[in-house]
Design a protein around this nucleic acid. Structure first.
Length: 542
RNA sequence: GGGCCCGUAGCUCAAUGGAUAGAGCAUCAGCCUUCUAAGCUGAGGGUUAGUGGUUCGACCCCACUCGGGCUCACCA
């Protein structure tokens, strides 16, 4: 519909000078009485033209030349809106279009031929994924889906570090528990990993090796086993949410390939780094950031910043057109350093998009749970999935904009799982499946021959809504925001449920029944497609 | 103290600078001999944290104030 009106305006611009550069913003009005599409261009032009907006609107309408079979009415309303009314015949064609495109309906070519890298989760293997990681995981995967629906080829990437201090502490934590299991009276350091899973890993080693690891280096078997067990656990959790990364990028390979040293040399050659107090500093203040930062400690060990930059260089070298990073607000202060360095090195940082999501606050037993992996004071993503189900978890995390804090009331999630809004969407799909099953046993089948019989408000609204899906996906592709898709699906499901209570199929006159069946089949397609973008299942029965 | 995010119905959240600020949950009142009642209909509930400003028009943009989260390492 919008496309059609934009074409009308493009033609009219040949007749009216001021329409040439005017931005044509089209809107779907909230009230049916305001038409199917509204345009406020006259209001915007009024200032520059020093004319009454209603008068401008009149001139514009006079210059538009719509097909009477498509547009039945154009009117000026309120302060100067132009409202367009589409014919039922044009709307009916939407059903046919959806049916023909089927599982491709909603897809766009916006990023056709482009390659994207979406990096998300990227938790180091020091413990199970928590609810906080869950938000990152779900949003990241949905962003990847959205890019795919817009024609992009997408790699889902997980960046991790299995060396360094954290992992040393992890290995030693396991060793301490191991010795403890052997009956030794050891003191478990407070800043070590307190989680129960550490003891489980130690027990596994004890079963397998007995007491032969008493003198084993914590960085040896202990660290190795911890990493493999924890990583398997993380992958298992992600798998439950239907999330699979295609690339696991090990920070260590940056060292092995000499990229860290190479980058260090490059910074040195370009005069971007200097030595002070035994450390190497990057001149970030000269690149527009607040202050210089250490990239190599006086111990000779690089800080995370250096490999981070080297890592992102590989993303450019690997030929991605679009580079998306997703992380929590605790990392918000670090990415400007990476961006500044990349820009200085000549990489097009316009290709990069860093998405920051705010924290998840867990409410349990009436209080806030302060999360800390180290202190083992957290709720794991697995627990959350156990209490609810993967669809609810995905829905919950997708349903909010990433800029907002997310309050997750665990008790409520457990107790009200049956009344979660996600069922509302899935139930709409299941209901349609049920109708189709029932109808298959009768003489009825969907037909597009009499779609003009669909004239009730409940039918018209539903048709207009399924039409909007393409636009919703395109917009999501632009701002990489999956929450709008959830919102759309709720509206679509709501319109369907209302249609369902008022418009019967079985028992209606045959032509009408078959037209309604066609409509309902189209709604099913859009629901299924939409649910798949946000990563939810579309159950046939509930 | 500086930077980023947030503040909307009792609760969780929506609303490209547009027309009467909307959903879900919770509360109350109705609707199942007919395609799934995990549904539908209706009611109550708001000074959009506050004060100014910008303009035809502000929940949205700007300034300040108040309140909350994150962050400002030779930790990642």
């Amino acid at each position: 519909m919008k496309k059609y009106i934009l074409e009308l305006f493009a033609k009219a611009a040949n007749k009216i000078e001021y329409l040439k550069d005017a931005p044509i913003i089209l809107d779907v009005p909230k009230a049916d009485s305001h038409g199917d599409i509204a345009c406020n261009v006259a209001l915007g032009l009024s200032r520059a033209l020093k004319k009454n907006p209603r008068q401008i609107a009149e001139e514009i309408i006079a210059s538009l030349d719509p097909d009477a079979n498509v547009i039945t009415k154009m009117e000026i309303a309120g302060p100067g809106f132009i409202n367009f009314f589409f014919s039922p015949g044009y709307l009916a064609r939407i059903i046919t279009e959806v049916t023909e495109k089927d599982s491709d309906f909603g897809k766009s070519d916006r990023y056709k031929g482009k390659k994207a890298n979406v990096e998300f989760v990227s938790a180091n293997p020091t413990g199970p994924l928590t609810v906080g990681h869950g938000r990152n995981a779900v949003v990241g995967d949905t962003v990847a889906n959205i890019l795919e629906w817009n024609g992009c080829e997408v790699d889902r990437e997980y960046y991790f570090n299995n060396a360094g201090r954290q992992m040393r502490v992890l290995g030693d934590s396991v060793k301490h528990r191991y010795l403890e299991l052997l009956g030794e009276d050891i003191k478990f350091p407070e800043d070590y990993y307190q989680g129960e899973y550490i003891t489980d890993i130690a027990r596994g080693l004890l079963d397998e090796y007995g007491d032969s690891l008493r003198d084993e280096d914590p960085e040896g078997k202990f660290r190795e086993r911890a990493e493999s067990v924890i990583f398997a656990d993380i992958r298992g959790t992600l798998e439950r949410l239907n999330i699979r990364h295609s690339v696991f990028y090990n920070e260590n390979s940056l060292y092995e390939e000499g990229r860290i040293q190479g980058l260090l040399d490059l910074f040195n050659e370009r005069g971007l780094s200097y030595h002070k107090d035994g450390a190497v500093w990057l001149k970030l203040s000269e690149l527009g950031n607040e202050q210089d930062k250490v990239i190599v400690k006086s111990t000779g060990e690089p800080t995370y910043r250096l490999p981070d930059i080297a890592y992102h260089v590989t993303k450019y070298e690997r030929g991605y057109d679009r580079i998306v990073d997703l992380f929590g607000s605790d990392h918000a202060a670090t990415y400007p350093d990476v961006l500044a360095a990349l820009k200085e090195l000549g990489y097009d940082t316009e290709k990069m998009k860093v998405l920051i999501h705010q924290f998840v606050t867990i409410l349990k037993d009436g209080g806030i749970v302060k999360m800390s992996t180290r202190k083992a004071n957290y709720i794991t993503l697995d627990e959350l999935i156990d209490w609810t189900n993967p669809d609810i978890v995905r829905y919950y995390f997708n349903n909010r904009t990433i800029n907002s804090h997310l309050n997750f009331d665990v008790d409520l999630a457990k107790k009200q799982s049956d009344e979660n809004p996600v069922f509302y969407l899935q139930y709409a799909h299941a209901r349609i499946c049920s109708i189709i099953r029932t109808v298959n046993e009768q003489e009825l089948k969907a037909s597009h021959d009499h779609l003009d019989l669909l004239v009730r408000d409940e039918e018209i609204r539903l048709i207009k809504k399924i039409h909007q899906f393409e636009e919703v996906i395109a917009e999501a592709g632009e701002n990489l925001d999956g929450s709008k898709i959830c919102l759309y699906l709720e509206e679509l499901a709501g319109l369907f449920h209302r249609f369902y209570t008022v418009c019967r199929i079985i028992g209606s006159e045959k032509n009408l029944a078959e037209a309604r069946l066609a409509l309902v089949a189209a709604v099913k397609i859009v629901l299924r497609n939409g649910l798949s973008v946000v990563g939810l299942s579309a159950p046939e029965r509930m």
